[in-house]
Amino acid sequence: MVGSTPLCTQLKGLSPGQIGLCQRYTDHMPSVGRGAQIGIHECQFQFQSRRWNCSIIEGDSSVFGPVLERASREAAFTHAISAAGVLHSVSRSCKDGELNSCGCSRARRPKDLARDWIWGGCGDNIEYGYKFAEVFVNIREKDKNHPRHSKELARMLMNLHNNHAGLRAVYNYAMVSCKCHGVSGSCSLRTCWQSLPNFREVGLRLKDKYDGAVEVKFNKRGTKLKRKNRKFNKPGKEDLMYLESSPDYCNANPETGSLGTVARECNRSSAGTDGCNLLCCGRGYNTFKRKVVERCHCKFKWCCYVECKTCEKIVDVHTCK
């Protein structure tokens, strides 16, 4: 594809390298967009009861706002889940046949065979998704060269690592299904294929990694990151790493990008992170009654239109002061 596609320059938040990729792979962009969407959606599900709830800022080119300028755990998680979302979505589009370049296996086929897929079938969708997502999310980091010991280099290394961790959270957990179809259906011939893991599982896995993320710093030469505290395990390839500790996200702070927890709904009876005590940072909460209209007595089928009655009930709602 020659010439710039206007779509790519209008899209906010793409780095110059990503704009280049966007122009080459225009057909991949809707799928990349969907990938980012499911990433954000899953992030919000996983963090719905935390002080930082993965809120996005409308109109901001970096989506999550200034909160990600700090090299915190939260930044690590969002990078990982976005990369995972892109991989997930591109692989699915590849399977759907939406993409032009997601090709068939070219390995070892005779040169004169016109339609290569007849020889050995097509390549694996997930592998293609991995390769594309890897290039797409990492090119953003690799746009510039940074000197040793610089803050930018540290951030770049952290992002690259977390991107990979996100990709691996999908790729390494692809489900392998097999079917026997030999003589009389015996297992003398068995064919296996990979399917994408559910994105919810990916989110759960990354949330675990978020909780166990490792704080890192430069090594002596200033070229690589290593764990800050030797008591903790070395960060593996699937683990998340961060450079700076997180703010407490209790109060709005334009510097850290924290939105604060004022007016967030909380659960009075919970002792967990969604409990009013923790979520409101000890500031207390307001209680009021709200009328909720619900659908009830439904007759469910496996899909579609459901016949229900509507019921009203009044619930207590607590919000942080």
């Binding site: 086929r109 050995g120 079938g121 969708n125 179809h181 011939l189 064919t191 294929w193 399917s195």
Partner: peptide
């Protein structure tokens, strides 16, 4: 020869 069989999803 390539793999004996292929999967189309």
């Amino acid at each position: 020869a390539p793999a004996p069989s292929n999967v189309v999803t």
